[in-house]
């Protein structure tokens, strides 16, 4: 039995009321969306809010629609299950729809929101544990302690970004829209995550993520998300691979992007992937050869750490395997945008 620490709960009905509550209560307040990341973390005594401000009753934050420019606008409180099954998301942002559909299990996808997923706390096997468990090891840098158990002598937390939506949204060039009592701001998701495992997101107290915007994709856009995990359900990623392939009308790759996650605090873009794949035609040996080269590049550029479960060397060996598989999935799925 894991009890929650005591806190007060507010359920404002408007965004304005929620922003005011956050502004009034400063650092002692936290936002709760679906609660599927926050509640386990509170049960593990990783945060100590006096007030939880639930966004569940704010209708304006929920829903997925086509944007005027031909992209997508997804309210932060839209359940992951809705993103995964939306025809619009599956056609305009296939990697994102697939990533959302692979998060956790069915109940958690009904409860968990896209906003909460983007803002998921980093994970580490030495951190996502009860107070009692953590105390036995003298705690760690990220919470209550001064040492890192992953990197001996390390002065920087390297807990893993484990949100499946993040690499997909990075491959799609998504923009995050925030509101606070003092105004609104937009930030490209590429600029949002940092390499600091203690706080890997540039979000200020009092800010609410209201909307995720995905720009329009070119006609020949294809995408896929591949996920390594022990079981086919429930588990967080041991590796996540988001693939973007923008092709000409003749199925020749014009632009590509690969973003990997569950490595360190920040999702990682594979360098030189686009140059390597560009000019090759899907379904030809040239494409397969380029995919093989990209898999090798990813292998060289990624170093999984002993931060999350699963042997780090094995997870490293799985990098090229999942890069190849996910590239093949993107290349062979029917081109959904045309």
């Amino acid at each position: 039995m894991l009890r929650l620490p005591a806190f007060a709960l507010e359920r404002p009905r408007t965004l304005r009321a929620a922003l005011e509550l956050l502004a009034e209560n400063g650092q002692s307040a936290m936002v709760v969306a679906g609660g599927t990341d926050l509640l386990p973390n509170l049960k593990h005594e990783l945060f100590d809010p006096k007030l939880l401000v639930s966004l569940a009753e704010i209708d304006e934050l929920r829903g997925l629609c086509a944007s005027a420019e031909g992209g997508l606008e997804i309210g932060a409180m839209t359940p992951l299950a809705d993103v995964a099954t939306s025809e619009l998301a599956r056609t305009r942002a296939p990697a994102l729809a697939q990533a959302c559909g692979l998060v956790a299990g069915p109940q958690l996808r009904t409860m968990g929101t896209l906003g909460g997923n983007v803002l998921l706390d980093t994970r580490c096997q030495w951190y996502n544990q009860t107070y009692f468990w953590r105390s036995a090891l003298g705690f760690c840098l990220k919470k209550d302690g001064s040492a890192c158990h992953v990197v001996a002598g390390g002065k920087k937390c390297v807990a893993a970004a484990s949100n499946d939506s993040a690499p997909a949204l990075m491959s799609l060039g998504a923009v995050l829209h925030f509101e606070s009592a003092s105004g609104a701001r937009e930030v490209a998701i590429d600029e949002f995550f940092t390499g600091d495992g203690i706080q890997n997101k540039k979000i200020a107290p009092g800010e609410i993520l209201t909307c995720v915007r995905i720009p329009p994709m070119p006609a020949g856009h294809r995408g896929a998300y591949g996920k390594l995990r022990d079981r086919g359900s429930i588990d967080f990623p041991l590796l996540g691979v988001a693939v973007r392939l923008d092709c000409s009308s003749k199925d020749v790759v014009e632009n590509a992007d690969l973003v990997l996650t569950a490595l360190a605090a920040q999702p990682k873009r594979v360098k030189r992937a686009s140059e390597t794949l560009a000019g090759t035609k899907l379904g030809t040996p040239a494409f397969d050869e380029a995919a093989e080269k990209v898999a090798e590049l990813a292998y060289q550029q990624c170093r999984p750490l002993a931060n999350i479960p699963g042997d780090a060397n094995w997870r490293h060996e799985m990098v090229p395997v999942w890069v190849r598989r996910t590239l093949a999935a993107a290349a062979t799925e029917p081109n959904v945008t045309t």
Binding site: L2, L9, R11, V32, G35, T36, L39, P40, K43, H44, L52, S54, A56, A104, G105, P106, Q107, L108, T110, M111, I234
Partner: peptide, 25 residues
């Protein structure tokens, strides 16, 4: 803490985990 599904109940007909649902919600 959300791992097992033993606490599953239906909320407005949808399966959810009661151990991660605040009663107030």
């Amino acid at each position: 803490k959300g791992d097992c599904g033993a606490c599953t109940v239906l909320l407005d007909g949808q399966p959810v985990l009661a151990c991660l649902t605040l009663a107030g919600l």
